[in-house]
Computed example of a mutant assay.
Amino acid sequence: MTQGCAAPAQTAHLPATVDLAREAVIQGTVVRGDVPVAGAYARLLDSTGEFTGEVVTSDEGIFRFFAAPGDWTIRVLAPGGVSIDSSITAAIGEVAAVEVAI
């Protein structure tokens, strides 16, 4: 399974060590039709558009970021030159979920 920048494995379930009472989590899936897209890059951009982090989607098309509370943009760069932006808000104690269809 591909990982980015020492990020934990990108799986559908949060690791047992994650304490949601103290974390804001952004998690999503990249799909083409009904098929997950593995190997896409998910970038986390702050409210000013500045790059904050990047992970590679898992075999199931899953990505995850642990972020500060607030407004974020997820930019997905997928095979074939596809680039899609999605806005999302992260909050402590929640998993902000997004599905990115390419």
Rank of each mutant, 00 (worst) to 15 (best):
T17I: 12
V18N: 13
D19V: 03
L20A: 11
L20C: 08
A21M: 09
A21T: 07
R22V: 04
E23T: 09
E23I: 04
E23V: 05
E23D: 03
A24M: 12
A24W: 04
V25F: 09
I26Q: 08
Q27T: 00
Q27V: 03
G28T: 07
G28A: 00
G28D: 06
T29Q: 11
T29C: 08
T29N: 01
T29Y: 02
V30R: 05
V30S: 06
R32Y: 01
R32E: 03
G33T: 04
D34L: 09
D34W: 07
V35H: 01
V35Y: 00
V35K: 02
P36L: 13
A38K: 01
G39L: 00
G39N: 00
A40D: 06
A40F: 04
A42S: 02
A42P: 01
R43N: 08
R43L: 15
L44H: 00
L44E: 06
L45F: 06
L45W: 06
D46G: 15
D46Q: 15
D46N: 15
S47D: 10
T48I: 02
G49P: 10
E50H: 07
F51H: 14
T52E: 10
T52K: 13
T52W: 08
G53N: 15
G53H: 10
G53T: 12
E54S: 09
E54N: 10
V56K: 11
T57W: 05
T57R: 01
S58F: 06
S58T: 03
D59F: 03
E60M: 14
E60Q: 08
G61L: 03
G61C: 06
G61F: 03
I62T: 10
I62D: 00
F63T: 02
R64W: 11
R64Y: 01
F65A: 01
F66W: 13
F66L: 14
F66I: 05
A67E: 11
P69G: 15
P69I: 12
P69D: 07
G70Y: 07
D71N: 10
D71T: 10
D71G: 08
D71R: 15
W72G: 02
W72V: 15
T73R: 13
I74Q: 01
R75Y: 11
R75N: 09
L77S: 08
L77Q: 13
L77H: 09
A78E: 05
A78R: 02
G80F: 14
G80D: 04
G81T: 13
G81Y: 11
V82L: 13
V82W: 11
V82C: 12
V82D: 09
S83C: 13
I84G: 00
D85Y: 11
D85I: 09
D85H: 14
S86L: 04
S86H: 12
S87W: 13
S87Q: 12
S87A: 14
S87N: 13
I88H: 03
I88N: 02
I88D: 03
T89R: 06
T89Y: 08
A90G: 05
A90F: 08
A90Q: 07
A91K: 11
I92V: 10
G93M: 07
